[in-house]
């Protein structure tokens, strides 16, 4: 039996991995989203309301949260067809803050006071979602469809002229990513059994992006590694007490200077193979 401290960290890593993968999937079409915490919030609130108010079984409620987030991702994806780079990042940031304020002023779910009453998922229950999703993304990124997403990122005009439906690919990526973040939200809600709008703020979105940037943005193992590193690093640096956040920042900068593509990439994996 593992300690509740270790269980807490492991659950956090699982949830953060899925959340980071949601950023990674959007990055596959070359777009940066700074608002994925909003999709997480939608998943969390949808799933929680369903389990608490309507007695829906947890897995079904989490799946419903994913669907709601996925549809929202489709809607948010539309501006992404016209905006790119920093402009899209700004738009998604605005969307994230908008969603947070929406839940802040939504009395039905407790507003700023938050929402509770959910049943708690076990650590195994969390990873029963995390592992299959991880496997799914790891498989998907070896597919022709994933190549098509990367073609959109590399050269959208050429991709279109070669017969790829770039509109559908971008919207699909946004929707799938939003659904992933929604699941992360549902898991979060049923692990912490309490949610509040502040849990899905810009810090959360930034953390997802950071996990991808740090862990590696070229293969799916990168974000997972990044999420784990982000969860563990502050713990590992605990011995220097007050300086740990500063030290953490310094470590981050050094890593990004040495490996701008992130810690994990295909070349590293090849080198590690016997």
């Amino acid at each position: 039996m593992i300690s509740s401290y270790a269980a807490g960290l492991l659950a956090e890593i699982g949830i953060a991995s899925i959340a980071a993968l949601s950023v990674y999937v959007i990055l596959a079409v070359g777009q940066l989203s700074l608002g994925n915490a909003a999709f997480m919030a939608c998943g969390a609130y949808t799933a929680s309301v369903l389990t608490v108010e309507h007695g829906v079984p947890i897995p079904l409620a989490i799946a419903a949260g994913a669907v709601v987030s996925g549809v929202l991702g489709l809607v948010v994806g539309f501006p992404a067809l016209r905006l790119r780079g920093i402009y899209l990042a700004m738009a998604t940031l605005g969307f994230g803050e908008m969603t947070r304020s929406f839940f802040l002023s939504l009395d039905a779910t407790g507003g700023a006071a938050g929402y509770s009453g959910m049943q708690r998922l076990s650590l195994g229950g969390i990873w029963a979602w995390v592992l299959p999703l991880l496997a799914l993304v790891l498989l998907a990124e070896r597919s022709r469809l994933w190549l098509a997403l990367n073609a959109v990122r590399d050269d959208e005009t050429a991709a279109r002229l070669l017969g790829l439906n770039t509109v559908a690919l971008k919207l699909g990526a946004f929707s799938a990513a939003a659904a992933l973040a929604g699941i992360a939200g549902g898991l979060f809600a049923h692990w912490h059994i309490f949610i509040e709008p502040g849990a899905f703020n810009l810090d959360r979105s930034t953390e997802m992006v950071l996990a991808v940037v740090l862990g590696g943005s070229t293969i799916a193992l990168g974000p997972v590694f990044g999420a784990a590193a982000l969860a563990l690093a502050p713990e590992a640096l605990r011995f220097i007490a007050d300086w740990r956040l500063a030290a953490f920042g310094a470590v981050l900068i050094v890593i990004l200077l040495l490996r701008p593509q992130g810690i994990i990439d295909k070349r590293l994996l090849r080198a590690l193979k016997p």
């Binding site: 498989l139 998907a140 070896r142 597919s143 022709r144 469809l145």
Partner: peptide
Amino acid sequence: RAALAPLGLS
């Protein structure tokens, strides 16, 4: 389904 299959098996 074919589009989603890993490249090696597609």
